[in-house]
Simulated scan of single mutants.
Amino acid sequence: MFGGGGMNPRKMKQMMKQMGIDVTELDAEEVVIKTADEELVFTDAQVTRMDAQGQETYQIVGEPETRALGAGDEGGDDDAADADAGIPEDDIEIVAQRAGASKDEAREALEAEGGDLAAAIARLE
């Protein structure tokens, strides 16, 4: 970052604090970067937020999985239908599990809420 390779991490943190840079590790489960033609999906990535003079910068360390935009898992008929609807199978499973609902009910709630997981769960509860 500042050419401090080999510097004591504690001393580096102290120097950054003196310079007015606040560093926070985030407990991120997944990071998705959407480009014009693909998605980069980082799972189990290290995410660090640096706040320097009111400007927030995020650093992601990990290996991304690359997938085409709008592509879901292409294993079975249910997955293909979900990809057509634009609702990822993982989202349907999360909503169904959290709300104690069937996959069909979860899919309908997600479609009604435009893919918003929290709103779909609230709708079913």
Rank of each mutant, 00 (worst) to 15 (best):
T66Q: 08
A112F: 07
V61K: 09
L124A: 02
G114R: 07
R98A: 11
D79N: 03
Q97E: 13
G6M: 13
D73Y: 10
F42A: 02
E74K: 14
A68Y: 10
R123M: 12
T43G: 07
Q53V: 02
A99M: 07
G86A: 00
Q97D: 08
V95Y: 00
G70R: 05
L26K: 13
I87W: 04
M12S: 08
E38H: 13
A36N: 11
V47A: 03
L124D: 01
A112E: 15
R10P: 01
I21T: 04
I121K: 02
I60S: 01
G100F: 07
G3D: 12
A112H: 07
N8P: 00
D27W: 06
Q97G: 08
I33D: 03
K17V: 04
D77F: 09
D84T: 13
D37C: 03
Q14R: 13
D84C: 03
Q53P: 02
M7I: 12
A109L: 08
V41T: 09
D37L: 05
Q55K: 04
K11Q: 15
E39T: 02
E63A: 15
Y58P: 00
E38S: 13
D27H: 05
G20E: 11
G62A: 08
E29H: 09
G100H: 05
E105N: 10
V47P: 02
M1Y: 15
G70D: 09
Q55F: 00
I21W: 08
T48L: 12
V32R: 10
T24R: 11
D44Y: 04
S102T: 15
A71D: 15
A68R: 13
D27L: 01
G86W: 08
G115K: 02
A120D: 05
G76W: 09
E56M: 04
F42S: 04
Q55M: 00
G115A: 05
R10D: 13
G5M: 14
K103S: 11
L124R: 03
A106I: 00
M1R: 11
G54Q: 07
Q46C: 14
A45S: 09
G72W: 01
L110I: 04
R123Y: 13
L110E: 06
I87K: 00
D104F: 11
G6Q: 05
D84M: 07
D104N: 11
T57V: 03
P9L: 08
Q18V: 06
Q18C: 05
V41A: 07
I60N: 05
G62I: 13
V41C: 07
D82P: 03
E125W: 07
E56F: 10
